[in-house]
Design a binder for these strands. Structure first.
Lengths: 338, 338
DNA sequence: TTGTATGCGTTATCAG
DNA sequence: CTGATAACGCATACAA
C-alpha cells in the first residue's frame, strides 16, 4: 500500500516531484525521474484512483444499469453479449465499468441522479428498461450523461443506440412474401417497448407494399414471453387456419410459436413458416433451427459505450446510433405449399 | 453537485454536524437533524462515495475479474448466470461491483495487486481463469482477498467456491450403470482445469464400484470445445463400436458428441446414451434434450460473493464452499438395448 | 528543476 | 450537543 509519500521519502524528494515524475511531466530531471520510477517499482506503487479522481474531478468510470439483472432473463444471452461489447469498448477507451446494483425497491429510496452521483460515474449506460419505468423520466431530467439501449429518447445529455428495427421487420416480412405467403400474422412484444412499435411498423409497411390488407386480428401480444406466445399462437392458429406464416418480434416468442405449432401437429416449415428476431444463441439450436433477424448485440454494446464517451468529450452531436440487422435463413421458413 | 459544505452553509452549522446528522449519530439535536435532512433533500445531496472511501479507507467495492469476457464464450450462459448471482449477493450485502477490464496484453503491464489496489477494491472474485494463467500465481501471492470460482486453491486471503464435481460425475455414471451400460467412455475437458480431474475421478470411482475395468482408451480430451468433441467422439465411436454410453464433462462437449452420433447415423438414446455436465440453457433445447448434471450457476456466484465478504469481515475460516449438483434426466439416456 | 501550500469531500478526534 | 482541525492520497498554482 505504498503511497506517493512513501516514494517521496525514499527518494528524498517532495511528493510534488514524485507526482510529476510519474505522470510524465517534462519539467523534471531525468535522473530524478528514473530514480523515482525505480523506487516506485520496488515499492509496487500504484496510484490510488480514488484520491486522484477526487482531486481531478474525473473518475474514468461509467455505470451500467441493467433492469432486473437477476435469475430471470438469463435465457437469452442478449444482455450478456451487450455487456461484453460495452466492456471491451470501455477497455479500449480507458474507462472502467461499475455495475449498478439496483431493483425496484432500491429505486424508490434513491433517485437516479443520487445513485450516479454517489458513485461519481461520468456517465451511465442503461439497458433493458421498460418505457414505463419511473426511472426513465429521472434519466432524462437528470443532467447525467446517459446512453439508452433500444429506447429512442434524446435529451441534452441523453443519447441512444438501437438497431434498425423497422427495416429488420421489413426484411423478415419480405422474406415471407417472397416465399409466397400472404396470410402472415405477427406476434409482437409489449406496446411499452419502442422496438415493438417499430417492428409493427415494418410489418405493416411490407404488407402495404405487397398490397395485402392489414388485418388487426393477425397481430397479437406475446409480451416477449415464450409461454405467453405459445398460448396466443395456439389461439391464433385455431381461429385463423388460413395463416401460413408468423413473424415474431423476438426469438423467445418464436420458440413459443414453435411449441404451439407442435401441439397442433403442424409440421414446420411445411405447414407454417416462422421468423424470429434477435438471433439469440438458442435460435440455432431449437428444432427446427429458427430463421430470424440477427442483431449484433456485441456491437450494440460496443457502440453504446463509444457514444457515451464521445458525448462526454463533446465529440458527438447526434447522440444516436442505429445499427443494421440482417436476415438469417434457417429452417423454419419455406415457400408456401399450394 | 451539492456537497456537505453547501448544506452546512445553508443550515448555518458546521460540516461536522451535517456529517453526523446525516449518518445517524445520536449526539445531535433532533431539531438540527431534521433541518439538515430537509436541506439535504432540497439540494438533492448525495454523499461522494470517493471522498468517503478515501477517508474511511473502505470502498465497499468488489472487483470481478473474468478471463476473456468477450465475444467468445457467450454461447454458454455460465459466466453470465454466475455474475447475476454475484451481483445480487453483493447488493444484499451493500457492496458494489466493478468489472475489471483486462486481457493478456494488459496483464503484462499491470500486476494483479496493482490492478486491485488502483481501484481500491476490498476484494476480488475471479472467474474462468485457467490453471496456467500467470495471474493465478499473483493472486495467491498478493494479499488481496480473493475468491476463485472452480479453482480449488487456498491461501491466507484466498478462498474458492466450486461444486461437487466428483460426486456430480458419480451421479452421471451411476445413472448410466443403472441403465445397464458397461462400456462407458468419457470426454473430458483439458487437464489444466481442476474440474476435469475431479470429474475423471468420479468416473473412475463408479467404474471401480461396479467392478468394471478402467480402460484408458475410453477417456479422450474434448478441450471443453463442441467442435473438438465432435471430432474425438467420431474417432472414438469408430475405434470402439462396443461403447454404448458417453459421459461428457460439459454440455457443450456433449453437444459435439450428439453431432458426431448424428453423423454416424446413430439414434440417440437408443444407440448411444449421452450425459453432459453444467445444464446450460442450450441443454434443454438440443435435439434430443440433454441428460446432464446441473450446476446451480447463480448460486455459485451468490456464494462466492458471500464468501468474499465473510472473509473480509473475518467471519469465514474455512475459505471454501462446495455446492451440490443434481442429475437432470432428459432424453439422451436410455436403458441399454440388448 | 524542485518544493510549499492548498484543496478535492468526507469522517474522526478532541475540545468546548 | 456542536465546531475547529486534521487527515485520507493525490495534483497543481505558485514560489523559490
Amino acid at each position: 500500500m505504498a503511497t506517493i509519500k512513501d516514494i517521496a521519502k525514499a527518494a528524498g524528494v517532495s511528493v510534488t516531484t514524485v507526482s510529476r515524475a510519474l505522470n510524465g511531466y517534462s519539467d523534471v530531471n531525468e535522473k530524478t525521474r528514473t530514480k523515482i520510477k525505480e523506487i516506485a517499482e520496488q515499492l509496487q506503487y500504484s496510484p490510488n484512483a480514488l484520491a486522484r479522481s477526487l482531486v481531478m474531478n474525473k473518475t474514468n468510470t461509467v455505470g451500467l444499469l441493467v433492469s432486473e439483472l437477476n435469475r430471470s432473463g438469463v435465457k437469452d444471452n442478449f444482455t450478456f453479449e451487450v455487456m461484453c461489447g460495452i466492456n471491451d469498448s470501455l477497455g479500449d477507451l480507458g474507462y472502467d465499468l461499475i455495475l449498478f446494483n439496483t431493483n425496484t425497491a432500491k429505486q424508490k429510496k434513491k433517485s437516479y441522479a443520487q445513485l450516479s452521483r454517489e458513485r461519481q460515474v461520468e456517465g451511465v449506460i442503461i439497458q433493458g428498461m421498460k418505457k414505463d419505468d419511473p426511472y426513465l423520466k429521472e434519466v432524462i431530467d437528470s443532467n447525467i450523461p446517459s446512453v439508452l439501449i433500444d429506447i429512442e429518447m434524446k435529451g441534452t445529455n441523453v443519447g441512444y443506440v438501437t438497431t434498425d428495427n423497422e427495416f429488420g421487420a421489413q426484411m423478415a416480412m419480405k422474406h415471407l412474401i417472397n416465399y409466397g405467403h400472404r396470410n402472415i400474422a405477427m406476434i409482437n412484444g409489449s406496446d411499452q417497448a419502442l422496438i415493438s412499435r417499430k417492428r409493427l411498423k415494418g410489418y405493416k409497411k411490407v404488407l402495404k407494399d405487397a398490397e395485402i390488407t392489414f388485418n388487426e386480428n393477425y397481430v397479437v401480444d406475446g409480451a416477449f414471453s415464450e409461454q405467453k406466445s405459445e398460448e396466443v399462437a395456439l389461439q391464433l392458429l385455431e381461429e385463423h387456419p388460413e395463416i401460413t406464416a408468423i413473424f415474431c418480434a423476438s426469438d423467445l416468442m418464436a420458440m413459443g410459436v414453435l411449441k404451439a405449432a407442435k401441439k397442433k401437429g403442424f409440421h414446420i416449415p411445411e405447414d407454417l413458416s416462422v421468423v424470429g428476431f434477435d438471433d439469440i444463441t438458442l435460435a440455432a439450436y431449437v428444432d427446427p433451427p429458427l430463421t430470424t433477424i440477427a442483431q449484433d448485440k456485441y456491437q450494440i454494446g460496443y457502440e453504446a459505450a463509444k457514444l457515451l464517451i464521445d458525448m462526454l468529450q463533446g465529440k458527438d452531436q447526434r447522440r444516436m446510433k442505429m445499427l443494421d440487422n440482417h436476415l438469417i435463413i434457417r429452417e423454419t421458413t419455406a415457400p408456401l405449399q399450394r
